[in-house]
Write a protein that binds this DNA or RNA. Structure first.
Length: 470
RNA sequence: GUAGGUAUAGCUCAGCUGGUUAGAGCGUCGGAUUGUGAUUCCGAAGGUCGUGGGUUCGAGCCCCAUUACUUACCCCA
């Protein structure tokens, strides 16, 4: 048997002890905030039936689904004609399950299946990995964890305001200060489209203006022109995109412009609803005493693709770091419609932990403590010492101290190197000399200092030292 | 799916217009130091140069194919 080079699928990663500790630090921060705001945890299976997943993410999304080959003789129902007809015909016969692509669709499925048990409004959070058969690149993985929080069964804009508060709190707690929470409303975008008087297609418009910060005015103009928008329409689009000033000022300018273009006829829907919604969210935030309005940016160009959002939409960008959005979300009015339960409104958002990790690493914002190592290593001098050292080790653990004995008798140099590399702060030396005197030596590896003390006092001393570290 | 780039030791990379036995740093292991690490010194192990073919007297280097990785686009967290 020839030795093969081991590998993992591209776009996936191993996480070593330090990385796991750091990821847990991020998960913990997010979880605590979600729970403080009243969200309850939910977990769903890694795999879903393909019928649940397909058609929910558009044609491109379907291609990015990982499908799971049926067990047993998966090819037994495939005919020669199927093969000739291509993958589309063969797929449903060989695969009936797939890996979850996001957490929102499984959540919708869960809500529909449990509609009789749920008390509305239902607030849930979910922290689980998702899989996409994408081409990996910077900040883009094929297996990554999403942290979603959604409320369904209420149209209250209080939820939107609280989302802003949660995003701000999580990112601030993680040490980030320079980030922008972008907010917009699908109604506002629709208003811009309606103001054009029926030129081009609405999705084309949204996709194009979403790229403004990336490809600039020129790029967006070209793209719109290619998509059949007239120069006149394009000019009008940019008039809207150039609204400027504070949150209130932008709202006022848009209201005036929309009024002039006659798209505010229905005061309870579309553009008018968009403006009043945003106004109200801002009002709630003021009532909450939200301090960081400088981080909240009403961005008319924010569109978030072609997804199912119908109301407010959010996206968070860390400034001065080359990284896509680390959080995003919005309100949807018909999430569960595809599963036969129409008219259920909800709003939710998601943190991309893997991207947050990359950002924190780049900005060196991980705290020192986010490493897991035992507090103390007991040196192993000889077999005879075990009668002294093993009871001591047991007592340390019973006292709640993380400790270990170097598993084999070997040169002290090696044991010291081991402690050093693992980041173990204290080393306990109980060799023949110390044992004869009923003493132990405790070495602080960081300071390089040693103290000798009666073996009966070690545990209380270590407890003091570990308390100091917090 | 589209377009580039890269592939040499466990890791990060040198390797001249094609020329004899492919190098360094870090890491690993051993020793200086049989009871003291992170700084010193000495030594050792470790590579069929991603894979297959071609050109050539001769290929790590040139050509073709292939695979993997990577960056950007599309899309997205």
């Amino acid at each position: 048997m020839s030795a093969q080079k081991p590998s993992i699928p591209r776009g996936t990663r191993d996480f070593g002890p330090q990385q796991v500790a750091r990821r847990n630090y991020i998960f913990g921060t997010i979880r605590r905030v979600f729970e403080k705001f009243g969200y309850a945890p939910l977990e769903t299976p890694t795999m879903e039936n393909l019928s649940v997943l397909t058609g929910k993410y558009g044609e491109e999304g379907d291609q990015l689904l990982f499908k799971i080959l049926n067990s047993g003789d998966f090819a037994k129902d495939v005919t020669a004609e199927d093969l000739a007809a291509g993958a589309k015909k063969v797929l449903p016969k060989v695969a009936e399950k797939g890996l979850r692509y996001d957490l929102t669709v499984p959540f919708a499925r869960y809500v529909v299946m449990n509609r009789n048990l749920l008390t509305l409004p239902f607030k849930r959070y979910q922290i689980q990995p998702v899989w996409r058969a994408d081409r990996p690149q910077r900040g883009r993985y094929r297996e990554f964890v999403q942290c979603d929080a959604d409320v369904v069964g209420t149209t209250s804009l209080l939820c939107e305001a609280e989302i802003v508060l949660m995003i701000d709190e999580v990112l601030s707690t993680l040490g980030l200060t320079d980030f922008t929470i972008k907010i917009n409303h699908r109604g506002v975008l629709s208003g811009i489209y309606q103001a054009l008087g029926g030129v081009g297609s609405e999705p084309d418009l949204f996709v194009a203006i979403d790229k403004l910060d990336k490809i600039g005015v020129e790029g967006v103009s070209n793209e719109l022109r290619q998509r059949g928008f007239t120069d006149e329409a394009i000019e009008k689009v940019f008039n809207y995109l150039e609204v400027d000033g504070s949150f209130e000022e932008k709202l006022t300018q848009l209201r005036t412009a929309f009024g002039a273009d006659g798209v505010l006829a229905d005061a309870t829907a579309g553009p008018a609803k968009g403006l009043t919604d945003l106004e109200q969210v801002q009002g709630y935030l003021q009532d909450f005493g939200f301090e960081n309005f400088q981080r909240l940016d009403f961005d008319v160009t924010l569109a978030r693709g072609l997804s199912y959002y119908t109301g407010c939409i959010f996206e968070v960008k860390v400034n001065n770091v080359q990284m896509g959005s680390i959080s995003g979300g919005g309100r949807y009015d018909n999430l569960t419609g595809a599963f036969g339960m129409p008219g259920l409104s909800g709003v939710g958002f998601s943190f991309g932990v893997d991207r947050i990790y990359d950002v924190l690493e780049e900005l060196q914002l991980f705290p020192e403590g986010a490493v897991s190592a035992p507090l103390c290593l007991i040196a192993n001098f000889d077999q005879e010492g075990r009668a002294t050292v093993l009871p001591l080790l047991r007592q340390m653990r019973n006292a709640g101290l993380a400790a270990e004995l170097y598993p084999e008798v070997s040169k002290l140099k090696k044991q010291f190197e081991y402690a050093d590399k693992r980041g173990i702060r204290y080393m306990l030396l109980a060799g023949p000399d110390e044992r004869a005197a009923g003493l132990v030596k405790l070495r602080d590896m960081r300071a390089g200092t040693e103290v000798t003390l009666p073996s009966g006092e070690v545990i209380s001393r270590l407890l003091e030292l570990s308390a100091e570290q917090r």
